[in-house]
Design a protein around this nucleic acid. Structure first.
Lengths: 323, 323
DNA sequence: CTGAAAGCGCTTACAG
DNA sequence: CTGAAAGCGCTTACAG
């Protein structure tokens, strides 16, 4: 039999309720008693029974991390990285992390519902955003605490979110290329959907225009033609690698003829030469902050929703060069 | 207030204990009663309270997935993939998946201990193997049910494990290259540690010798010189990409002058040309089988430990060519 | 500042 | 085949 709060109480010569209060560091318990209890706990090797605690308190002490309902999560190092940093922060707060992940929207929704209704978790961190997402709508309509990592495409004022400033990211990319002397710039993307694209591209576009340039937009799904452009801002590292290879096949060398700057600073950035000049989006902070925000929401469910912005950092490597 | 087993009992006109038995599909409950209970449950939207169930039954209904105590988990698509497939199978079995992940051995061990001692999980799946690993030793000495994905380097007979046949994998790589007419083969690795390397290399070596060849071993940490070799077997996709790039810088073209075959069939295999000929190690099956094995162990803790082997499949792409 | 008691929502011998 | 009761190990008003 595991040692319970009763055993500790007996050993410390107090009532079980006092032990409970001492453990939770109640202000009303005297320091002397807390000491006695702590000592007894250590001597007996006491450990809370989470089930009992959950049942009595109505709190799970756990949060769920919701992955996007897509097949290829493993292609993006982002997900493992963010999961690791979420887990790190959660551990410090004595919160357990559980996983919700499925291939379809329906399966994902049902998993999230079950987790919550069975009281296995107190709230969620969503790792994706999507228009009219059923999971998000469920969380919202049932007033379940959650935070999203990323920028909600709608109902943003009802949602607490943690993200980089993607607009600024786009602008800073322009800034850096211009500082290297580049004047003909293009933004390369393989998708024109989503907040991330929107923000990064508009940041890029507006900054370039404000500097008197006439930037262009290239969709990499079509044949890649860059004419006299010398500075490329590319949606993410993976796409950057592919674009660099395609340019190389066209006899165009990066960075000698064209400079490339991308986003994420993932593992791909230092996989093959030229190593990428890319923005580190600070995934560790994204994870930590999201846990902090969720923990806060759990304690104060009626607080205002808010948007948290995490700083980024440019990593200069081999894919950019002054003209 | 959420609806409880009592509410269901009242509605169905039976005792709460009967509802409990009906839910768990006890053989002693009549079909008629089960029907009544099921109907009442649906009408009321009943959902089990996991905390109460855990407390009363002593079972957590959850398993922990233990990640290796390293920084760069996110570089390997394997981890996200295996986590997804574990979660998939667990969901089907109504098991929740929780995460244990840390940067140091000590932190990881303590997280695992807390999870188990607080009864948050019933057992674990370890995603790595290492000699004299403290986590594994703890699980073993406290007789905690667990399965490892991979091949234990020692105490293998005390551990249930799920893995590919790495020895066969090495041999099959030789087989395929030889079938294309290659006779001068080399095995390329960046580590000479670990079961995976050992098995794959010995499989490679023995097969090559048995075919009358004199294979060589190349450590990619040193300068890459392959002389007259035309067939390369490379430890994993990432290393293969790097080696191909290095060869290309030396003016050696893959697959025209040298064929390359690697392992894992990760995202990297189809990232840039030449796309890799590589073995798919069937991560989905690895995940599913490990959950099945663990679930079995949970029910029959005294069953023999065993090793489960999951089949693999060769994916032929662009990096290999007949001589 | 602390104790005694009720209760959280299940499961599971025990009885019949 | 089903019911009544005890108990799992905590938390938290309520009292003092």
């Amino acid at each position: 039999m595991a040692v319970t709060i009763k055993d500790v109480a007996k050993r410390a010569g107090v009532n079980p309720s006092t032990v409970s209060r001492a453990i939770r560091n109640h202000a009303t318990i005297s320091d002397k008693t807390k000491e006695k209890v702590k000592k007894a706990m250590q001597e007996l090797g006491y450990r809370q029974n989470s089930a009992a605690q959950m049942l009595a308190s109505g709190k799970a002490g756990a949060i769920g991390v919701i992955f996007p309902p897509v097949e290829n999560k493993s292609d993006q190092p982002f997900f493992m990285k963010i999961l690791t940093s979420i887990n790190e922060e959660a551990r410090d707060k004595k919160i357990t992390v559980a996983i919700a992940s499925a291939h379809s929207n329906e399966a994902l929704l049902s998993q999230v519902q079950v987790m919550y209704q069975e009281k296995r978790v107190d709230g969620f961190i969503m790792l994706y955003t999507a228009q009219d997402d059923a999971v998000r709508d469920y969380l919202l309509s049932d007033k379940i605490p959650f935070v999203v990592i990323g920028t909600p495409s709608d109902r943003a004022n009802e949602i607490t979110s943690v993200d980089n400033d993607n607009h600024l990211l786009g602008a800073e990319a322009v800034q850096y290329l211009v500082s290297l002397g580049h004047k003909k710039l293009a933004f390369v993307t393989n998708t024109e959907l989503g907040e991330v694209y929107q923000e990064r591209y508009f940041g890029f576009y507006e900054k370039a225009r404000s500097l008197g340039l006439t930037p262009s937009l290239v969709n990499s799904e079509k044949k890649l033609t860059i004419r006299d452009v010398t500075g490329l801002v590319i949606m993410d590292d993976i796409l950057a690698i592919k674009v660099i290879q395609e340019l190389s096949e066209q006899g165009i060398s990066v960075p000698d003829q064209v400079s490339v700057i991308s986003f994420n600073n993932s593992f791909f950035a230092s996989l093959i030469h030229p190593y990428l000049t890319t923005f580190d989006i600070n995934v560790v902070q994204l994870g930590h902050r999201s846990v902090q925000k969720l923990a806060h929401l759990l304690d104060y469910p009626d607080d205002f929703r808010e948007k948290v912005t995490v700083p980024f950092e440019l990593k200069v490597r081999e894919s950019t060069k002054a003209v």
